[in-house]
Nucleic acid binder design. Sequence first.
DNA 1: ATCATATATATCGCACGCGATTAAATCGTG
DNA 2: CACGATTTAATCGCGTGCGATATATATGAT
Lengths: 155, 155
Amino acid sequence: MPAARPEPFANGLNPFICFAVYSANLAFSRVYKPFLDALGLTYPQYLALVSLWAEDDQTVGQLGEKLFLESNTLTPLLKRLEALGHIERNRDPADERQVRVRLTAKGKALREQARCVPEGILEASGMKLDALHELSSQITALRERLLAADAKKPR
Amino acid sequence: MPAARPEPFANGLNPFICFAVYSANLAFSRVYKPFLDALGLTYPQYLALVSLWAEDDQTVGQLGEKLFLESNTLTPLLKRLEALGHIERNRDPADERQVRVRLTAKGKALREQARCVPEGILEASGMKLDALHELSSQITALRERLLAADAKKPR
DNA sequence: ATCATATATATCGCACGCGATTAAATCGTG
DNA sequence: CACGATTTAATCGCGTGCGATATATATGAT
């Protein structure tokens, strides 16, 4: 965000780091679009599958913690992934409140199809891998501070 | 994104810079929420007003270039800002295809109400202003490279 | 002047993201 | 064991983003 000087909006959106993040997120989803169209996935669906490819058999709540989403967003998204045949959703017999999300054979096979996507995005970013990781960890650290501040607010 | 090695998804979402940006954007919108609730605005509505506070009397297309949005997103958003009394939308008499967006007195007054918001976000970020600006410009540069790569794709 | 083309905005449908609420299962304390 | 409190997902409504399309205005070649 801009300096907290007398006229904080005189220079428009560019001084705002929130806008840098907002617009970079739009840019990422546009760069991903052709790759994900080929897989028949949306960008958030892809992110959910990335999490499941690393760790199968997660509950909705566990997925939500990793994606920073709640069931009101995840449940419909997971139902679409289920309709596409990539996952199965079943109540956990040991605790019927929880729903376990598991990859199907088709969902596991999609991982191989998606293998080349990260290289394509890396190329589009025009950055070296080291610089990208450095920037990524700075943005992640910022996210954690923002969420910590958010958690401090009275609910 | 992670290294383009044989198992690109073995470490889940954390190596992906796109996810860092995605989740930081969610975090920003959550930190902004209490501030914007007090103003009766959504996060994208606030961004549109920030642009108008810096430069009044923009066309829908000009606003779209600054926000990286098209009329399919902007028109409904601007209609809501109009319904809230913050802006007026009028066809440009010199070129009836264009719609000029102008702040009302209420919209200009809201700028004063919003004056203290950037400081609140700065505090929530837990960063010094210099470090924030440096990070912001790196993210903006990444956005520009991504959009340039996107523009290269056949349409 | 005419008509095809280009430009600017609006409309529609769908997939998120999320506040608010609901429903069902489990836990905790008596 | 009973029963209120807690936990987990699901549901609903609304506001974005965006692909596809529609409409109206302006431009340009003849």
